[in-house]
């Protein structure tokens, strides 16, 4: 039987070409190490993120649908993987809206025709997150078999952010009982990192808002929200916060520094992408997974723990 998600279309999205560069690097390296193929969507565009959505949600739906149309109609894929929570959320939302709202489908058809590409139709492609990609292709046992050094009891708080599971109705594949991802208490990152040897701590703010939307309009609120997440992670016993979204990751890193400078509140917990941790567990080098590109300096700590 062919392995699930062995070869998928890869939609990195804008953030992974900028602040989330190390997430892009580590995702690709982990894919290679696990024997999973990523083929980048050709000539992709922004998913519409928050900016376009705020102006006109239907244009955001069109932008996301164009990415899915290229992957499905021009490249022949039935699965597109988006590691960014914002992109993942927007593609899922576009999929839902196109299937439910005739007016949206009509606007997308009109814009697609004008832009000169085939219109994306709901159901042509499945959008998955990087967590689904690894968890559903290899599972924990597959990770255990491939782990080399492992994470050796590293205490990790897994932070999923607020867009990975919300709103529930755009993720029909979740909450399907044992084995499926939960929108109330997501666990895929916990499962993968535990399989790699990490010790996951109970972390009550794993899906709490990091204040990403306030970052520009009200930085102080964002800093206080992030500081609360960092403190809660430390109080839970975590040495590292594992992330799976470039926006959350940057927010945690930047506001950790800002909290110290502006509020005099220093926290020592490290912030690392789950793909970086997984890569290290698989025996990849720290530079290979871009640890040096993170703002949060974790290299010394990871070396001390014997992980990097």
């Amino acid at each position: 039987m062919e392995q699930k998600y062995k070869k998928v279309a890869y939609y990195p999205g804008c953030a992974l070409e900028g602040t989330g560069h190390s997430y892009n690097r580590s995702t690709k390296e982990v894919g290679k190490a696990l024997g999973l193929d990523l083929v980048e969507v050709e000539n992709w565009n922004c998913c519409g993120a928050m900016e376009v959505k705020n102006i006109d949600p239907k244009i955001q739906t069109y932008l996301s649908s164009r990415v899915m149309s290229i992957a499905a109609n021009e490249m022949g894929f039935d699965t597109v993987m988006a590691p960014c929570n914002g992109c993942y959320h927007n593609l899922k939302k576009a999929e839902y809206d196109l299937g439910q709202d005739a007016e949206t489908a009509e606007v997308v058809e009109r814009l697609s025709t004008k832009a000169g590409h085939e219109t994306y139709k709901a159901g042509q492609i499945e959008t998955i997150h990087a967590l689904d990609w690894i968890k559903d292709s290899l599972g924990e046992e597959g990770i255990r078999q491939r782990v080399k050094g492992g994470l050796k009891g590293l205490k990790v708080a897994n932070y999923y952010g607020c867009m990975y599971t919300r709103p529930r109705h755009i993720f029909p594949e979740k909450d399907k009982g044992p084995g499926s991802e939960s929108t109330l208490k997501p666990h895929y990152m916990d499962d993968l990192l535990a399989a790699a040897g990490a010790e996951n701590v109970d972390f009550p703010l794993k899906t709490a808002c990091c204040g990403g939307a306030h970052t520009l309009s009200d930085s102080d609120t964002s800093t206080r929200l992030v500081l609360n997440i960092l403190r809660a992670a430390e109080a839970s016993g975590a040495e590292v916060i594992a992330t799976e979204c470039p926006t959350c990751h940057s927010g945690l890193e930047m506001h950790q520094i800002r909290a110290e400078k502006k509020l005099g509140e220093k926290t020592g917990v490290k912030i690392v992408y789950f793909t970086q941790l997984l890569g290290l567990a698989l025996g990849l080098g720290a530079r290979q997974v871009g640890i040096h590109e993170n703002v949060s300096d974790s290299l010394g700590f990871l070396k001390q723990k014997g992980i990097a």
């Binding site: 009550p204 703010l205 204040g211 609360n228 809660a232």
Partner: peptide, 11 residues
């Protein structure tokens, strides 16, 4: 801390 997060988010 959880209550504080709710307070910060809503305020």
């Amino acid at each position: 801390m959880v209550a504080m997060h709710l307070y910060l988010f809503i305020s």
